[in-house]
Structures are given as C-alpha cells and as structure tokens.
Amino acid sequence: MAERFGVLALQGAVPEHLRALAAAGVEAVPVKWPADLEGLRGLVLPGGESTTIGDLMQHYGFIEAIQRFVQEGGACYGTCAGAILLATEIVGGKPNQPRLGIIPMTVQRNGFGRQVESAEVPLAMPVLGPEPVHTVFIRAPYIAEVGPGVEVLAEHQGKIVAARYGRHLVTAFHPELTEDRRIHKLFVEMAFGAVSA
C-alpha cells in the first residue's frame, strides 16, 4: 500500500504544505513531474495562482496523470487555487482555464474580492470538533454549487468554503499558513479510508 503523500510543486505555497503533512505524521514529497505521482497515497494541490498552476499542469501532462492517479485510488486535497483546479466548473476564471474536473462543483474565483478583502476568520467546522478553526482567506474562492455526493463541511458569509467528496477534500482557505494541523490530519485519514463520506 502506498503510504507517501505529495504536494504538486509547480507554483505556490509548496513548503508550507510539506511541513503541514510532515506534522500530520506522514512522509511528504514535492511532485514536479507526472512520474512523481507513482506510489503516492494522497496529493495536495496547494494555494497559488490557479491560472498559472493550471497552465503548467496542462503543459507537463498533469491533467490526465492526476485523473489517472484518482481512478487508481489516490486522494486529492485542494486549498484555494487547488480547490479551483479540482472543480468541474470555474466562474470568473480566464478563458478555457485548465482544470481537473474531479469534484462535481462550481467554484467562484476571487469570490470574496481582491486582496484588501483578504481576512483571518475563526470558522466553525463541526467535522473537526467543537473548537473553531483559525483560517486565512487570501483572494479566496467559494463553492457556488455542489453536485451529488459532495458534503459541505463549512460556510463563511453564507458561502461554502470547505467540502469533501469521497476521499477528496477542498478548502477555500489556507490551513498550511497556521499551526492547526487538524485539516491535514483529516485529509490523511480520508486518504487512508478511515473516514468514509
């Protein structure tokens, strides 16, 4: 059984996720080429610029490679830009923005506005227990619509900002920028199938 986790390392906040995964108790490696997906249990699609990461994914053959990784049982966790890339529909993207289409949902890019609207928010996320999560939203998207099988995990200002779909997880915010490791631990559990949606 594959035990390792990877962080897609084309652009964005990669080291923060590698540290967060290590703190959640798993081995984590940067993924620079499709071949690096070999032997991974889970893949984090980090925050960054979704248009840039999407282009680079397309250029280096990651779209098909990650779709195949998922078909073979791999789990994905997307934060912010990563959540956009996992969606089937993107609103407010650039024309023909590449995406993986793994989670049936519509994501609104820059849903809360420009950088001056970016904020730190204490967020209720019952799946993690009663203690709210301290979250960081940066030019964050929100999930405008979810398809069948997608479970909403948290809302902010009436918008969906965290969800799971089977063993896949998305958050519009950045747990990797805080010291709270509950979300990375949740993803690790989901990837190993300990939590079923």
């Binding site: 652009q11 960054g48 912010c80 609207e117 904020a119 730190e120 928010v121 960081v136």
Partner: peptide
C-alpha cells in the same frame, strides 16, 4: 469576527506567489 489587512494575510499573498513570475 473576520480581520482584514493582518500581517498573516499580507505575507500570505506573497507566499501564494512563490515559484511564479
């Protein structure tokens, strides 16, 4: 309460630009 313009969100955007042009 949501807090805007904090040091974390300012540095956070810079973190998100890493590896980019």
């Amino acid at each position: 309460m949501a807090e805007q313009g904090t040091w974390k969100v300012k540095v956070g955007l810079a973190e998100m630009l890493k590896g980019g042009v």
